[in-house]
């Protein structure tokens, strides 16, 4: 945007009043996103997945928990069982719709919590600097000492299995990287003179952070956070797969993958479906975050 403006010097002298639309940052981001069909496409797919999950009770043709032994591992395309049946004869389509609710919830909630916790820790560390920064960031570094999944397994092991503890475990492992990103962008923004000017205006720290810092750091933090959604979905699916998270008979993509794994020789196409859903959803989040970065990353 800045570059475009620089290419036409004296623009405001030639263009009639009112012809220049001052869009502002988020306005420009929205405009740039609208010019990016690939990102829009992935966004639409994601929205469809979300809608499908939200309206699962309306859309699902069967009961997700009712077993139907004759329909065990039926092939994809069987009438009434559009995506086949699982190892207990439950309708795969229904299970996938309901599983999406759990998987998306388990994927998004820890990311939002981590955004809140890691983001505020990182912004505080970056803005205050000095010993506070040292304290917060070194504690965050401790979490980097462990491999992510191992740490999550360790935490759920310590807290006990179940979806609530899985949420806590994933929140804990996602907070440090968000804090790191937040800290680094905040440190950059803090060095700008407008922060000093705001201080010279007599504003206190919380006002400066609210008005001047957040408006500049939220973009990069959100981009990074979006890219973590897929990580979160995969980790929660993985932990459910390993038996640390969601417990049967709840439908969850990770758990479904785990139980259908044994039937992969009998009906590989059905067994692969939950994995495919995890893959598509994660890819969409990743590509969406890429598109967002392209739209938001303007040099100021």
């Amino acid at each position: 945007m800045a570059e475009v403006e620089a290419l036409r010097p004296g623009a405001e002298a030639e263009v009639p009043i009112g012809a220049i639309v001052a869009r502002g940052y988020w306005g420009t981001v929205a405009y740039r996103l609208s010019q990016d069909p690939v990102t829009i496409a992935f966004g639409v797919v994601l929205i469809l997945i979300f809608l499908a999950a939200i309206f699962a009770p309306v859309l699902a043709p069967h009961d997700p928990y009712k077993t139907n032994m004759p329909m065990r591992l039926t092939a994809i395309g069987t009438p009434g069982f559009l995506l086949g049946g699982d190892e207990l004869g439950r309708d795969m389509l229904t299970r996938l719709l309901y599983g999406g609710r759990v998987s998306l919830f388990m994927g998004l909630t820890p990311v939002l919590l981590a955004l809140l916790i890691g983001g505020s820790l990182g912004v505080t560390a970056g803005f205050v600097g000095g010993k506070v920064n040292m304290g917060i960031m070194r504690v965050m570094d401790v979490f980097y000492a462990f491999p992510t999944v191992l740490l999550a397994i360790g935490l759920t092991g310590a807290l006990g299995t179940g979806s609530r503890n899985l949420l806590i475990a994933i929140t804990v492992i996602l907070s440090p990287p968000i804090a790191r990103v937040a800290e680094s962008v905040t440190t950059q923004v803090r060095a700008f003179d407008f922060v000093e000017a705001a201080r010279a205006s007599g504003a206190d720290t919380s006002t400066i952070i609210r008005v001047h810092v957040l408006s500049n750091v939220l973009g990069p933090i959100l981009i990074y956070t979006t890219s973590l959604v897929s990580v979160s979905i995969i980790i929660s699916a993985g932990l459910s797969f390993l038996g640390f998270g969601v417990t049967p008979p709840t439908a969850d993509w990770g758990l479904m993958l785990a139980t259908l794994r044994t039937t992969i020789w009998a009906n590989p196409y059905v067994a692969v479906l939950p994995g495919l859903m995890i893959f598509i959803t994660s890819m969409c989040f990743n590509l969406l975050s890429d598109g967002m970065r392209n739209a938001m990353d303007m040099r100021f």
């Binding site: 000093e196 008005v211 001047h212 500049n216």
Partner: peptide, 9 residues
Amino acid sequence: YSSLNARLP
């Protein structure tokens, strides 16, 4: 440039 917040009108 750096003394004006780029996100504020």
